[in-house]
Design a binder for these strands. Structure first.
Lengths: 221, 221
DNA sequence: TTCAAAATATGAGATATCTCACATTATTCT
DNA sequence: AGAATAATGTGAGATATCTCATATTTTGAA
């Protein structure tokens, strides 16, 4: 992690004003941080004393289970908060957050302005909305996971994440996200090829029957 | 649903003061409601204009999927809020909430004091903490669901919900909560009996090998 | 008390998904 | 460039879980 100063600092602060997230001047407590791809913003199990507001980039929220298996809970995309739950509940064990791409965050030194934040209705309201949406999204994802086979969920995911009709994501990551084994993900992808829904190319999987894919996805929502 | 007035009203208001959840006097906006067992507090898909604070009782939070399957997302137990997300995001489709027992709630007419609530740091902070805990709990439950077989999760659930060494819950409800079919739940219960961990009696399943049950549960946490 | 609805129970067969072992490519780092 | 690491790909066999059909028992309401 790298702290940005000088011209770049003013650049980011100007480009992403977060003044209207607070009723007081947050700048004295704020820094701008840069995380390289693959860096951990929070190490799982640590007790962070910084809250971040991601303005550029993308990351993954992880939890590791006792049996060693790992769940990729959700993708975190700018703009969003990180470490807000830890701000509320002092000294709380955190989940792991790892960047997927170079990521820029505004960081707020919580110990310096905790009281101010917790008394700030504007800020708190934002956090409420954010937490509410997060809870709703996570719930939706996981209830679907347990009610639909991978066939449907993968179809929906491909439609969501494909670009120009090409699906090209890392299998190792997606199987964690969809909560299935690597092996099984490949089985279902192979099945989609078998059924002429996808076609495997050098550049990724090309969608050749979007209608059918949509039908499979639609059974979810 | 029945609105309580008279002596009972003052009784509940005195017994469960929620003044310290607000920085202003909430009583003008508040009523006390009683729901019978099995009643729906929110009908799924409706747009409620009331927020509740449950002070006595217990309920289930449901979502119905397109394919007709139903997920019991969580048990809601007093004290807690309901309809808080709808307060934040105006006019939001709600999930279903059904009581499991006679339940008493303080109700707040949102349309009359929405602005006041959304500007109240004390209230908002409570909601933040509540939402944060809820998100954490739901995430934990569902990531476990997908990483552990029913054997482990059921063991943990039995330890949690049994009373005096007796497990006695409705199978129809628990299979929805644990996200498995009724059939499969019965299989695993039978297996526990087979392995002399439980014993089926008229009053419910009696735990006869708590140590083993603990081992199975412990693999989770 | 009786009847309908809900809950419990069980079998048989299907399938969605997992584990493990191993081989083959890409990527990254030095 | 070469070596190490990560990602991809596939087979075989196991198992966790589901669907459906059907029978019995319990519960709740008229």
């Amino acid at each position: 992690m790298q702290i940005i100063t000088g011209d770049l600092l003013t650049h980011y602060i100007e480009q992403y004003p977060i003044d209207d997230y607070f009723s007081f001047d947050i700048r004295p407590y704020m820094k701008v941080c840069l995380f390289e791809k693959g860096e951990w913003i929070f190490k799982e199990g640590s007790y962070p004393d910084t809250m971040y507001y991601m303005v550029e980039g993308k990351a993954k929220l992880y939890v590791t289970h006792k049996n060693g298996k790992v769940s990729l809970i959700e993708y975190i995309e700018a703009p969003c908060f990180m470490g807000e739950i830890e701000l509320l509940n002092e000294a709380r064990y955190t989940k792991g957050i790892q960047t997927v791409a170079r990521t820029i965050c505004l960081s707020i030194a919580v110990h310096e302005c905790r009281e101010k934040l917790l008394a700030d209705a504007i800020f708190l309201r934002r956090i409420c909305v954010f937490l509410g949406e997060k809870a709703t999204a996570v719930t939706a994802k996981y209830t679907q996971n347990q009610v639909y086979p991978l066939e449907n969920r993968l179809a929906a995911f491909i439609q969501l994440s494909s670009d120009q009709g090409i699906y090209k994501e890392k299998h190792t990551e997606i199987c964690e996200y969809l909560g299935v084994s690597y092996r099984h993900l490949l089985y279902v992808l192979a099945q989609f090829c078998e059924e002429n829904i996808l076609e495997k190319t050098k550049k990724g999987y090309r969608i050749i029957n979007d209608k059918r894919l949509g039908e499979l996805a639609q059974e979810i929502l």
